[in-house]
Design a protein around this nucleic acid. Structure first.
Lengths: 221, 221
DNA sequence: GACGGGACTTGATTCTGGTCAAGTGGGTTC
DNA sequence: GAACCCACTTGACCAGAATCAAGTCCCGTC
């Protein structure tokens, strides 16, 4: 990861070259295969991460081992920056690679040191944390205010927005199911139902949204 | 609200008297009765708030009018600071007083202006946002990983911690129910069940935890 | 090409919690 | 004190999704 790569990350955009170089010193690269555990909930946090390639799932575990995926992180996204500012600096989630993945690890200290001299970076961080809060609020009311079908459809619509009505799932369906807080069986059944109604077509990990209008209509009821 | 009162708010603790005075200029007091709407989800945000006395509920509304209480804010707590840093500065929740309430309103501009000169305040804010993230994560996995009884018991135990095993509900049971994502009927039924098992005693808005050990044991199964 | 494993699908059944409806009790108003 | 309202409780019923159990499909290896 070169200095120029670094500059392309929005968070670092306000920094001078000298500051950027300081960040660059506390930086490491790591390659993982699918299924590697990066850190566990409760671990003392030493880094935050950038997914350069691949995908990582963040999840919480209940005492008896049930897992709930909170978020799936894709290439280009930062994660675990918020931990730097927690009272105890411990990760509140588990992180596990879902596919083969290339990661950049950032040490806390260099960035923390910069906060004093660059209020702009502080503002960027505040912005990114409040976006995360917003996202979590959405997840919360999707869960309580809407049923499984609604959640799946609105997930498909949001994913399909960029890609001309075709959604390619970057991670196994089980992971999507957990992210949407349902069992794999339920996800499968809902897809089947949408398929018989000719609203979508499913081919392995690719889902074609045949009737976006119809899908949207289902969100109303 | 005097300058000295202001200084006692943790967020403002790092500020000089001169800076504090600047915050003080953009400050207003407001008294509300129970049930007043302070702002609605989607409103352009102009202030953040301190509850001086009383209680405020923050909630989200579904399209068809179902309400989910996200948080109940009590005396001494700030709320809606995160909104300052959102892309569109709009409240992501509704705020409604639950009881008679005295509020302090803070304008955004003075604090935002201070961020450049006081990295400490920025750090405080980052800390408070990451605490909120943590809280939302807990709510998320309580919802998906645990059932209604579990949620209620762990709520009671956390509330009863300070007060020698006696919980006095500051807000109506319906509000608690919504905060815990269940219907009032369900809350009532669970309380009844715990009562017949001699784990608690209920008298109006006061709940006595007779058998904390037993309650904790129920969290295991 | 047979075997094995994992992801996914489908079916049958169960259960938690939601909905609808009626009833209770306390507090306030006239 | 009668009427009313509102929060809460209790009961009967229902439904969405979880669970349990097979079965299918795909893809790797040997």
């Amino acid at each position: 990861m070169t200095l120029n790569d670094l500059r392309r990350i929005p968070l670092f955009e306000p920094l001078t070259s000298e500051q950027l170089a300081r960040i660059h010193t506390g930086l490491r690269e790591r390659r993982c295969e699918a299924g590697e555990r990066l850190f566990a909930q409760g671990d003392v946090a030493r880094h935050f991460f950038l997914v350069a390639d691949g995908s990582v799932k963040l999840s919480r575990l209940s005492r008896d081992g049930d897992e709930k995926v909170i978020e799936v992180i894709q290439a280009g996204q930062l994660f675990a920056e918020a931990v730097m500012f927690m009272d105890e600096r411990r990760y509140p989630v588990n992180a596990t690679t879902v596919t083969e993945t290339r990661l950049i690890l950032f040490e806390h200290a260099p960035l923390l040191g910069l906060l004093d001299e660059s209020p702009d970076v502080a503002l960027k961080l505040l912005g990114s944390l409040s976006r995360r809060i917003h996202g979590l609020l959405s997840q919360l009311d999707e869960l309580t205010l809407h049923n499984a079908t609604y959640r799946l459809i609105s997930y498909l619509l949001s994913e399909g927005r960029a890609t001309a009505g075709e959604v390619r799932l970057a991670v196994p369906k089980q992971v999507i199911a957990s992210r949407l807080s349902m069992q794999p069986e339920t996800l499968s059944r809902i897809l089947a139902r949408l398929r018989t109604r000719r609203l979508i077509e499913v081919q392995g990990d690719t889902i074609k949204l045949c009737d976006e209008r119809g899908l949207r209509a289902m969100l109303e009821s």
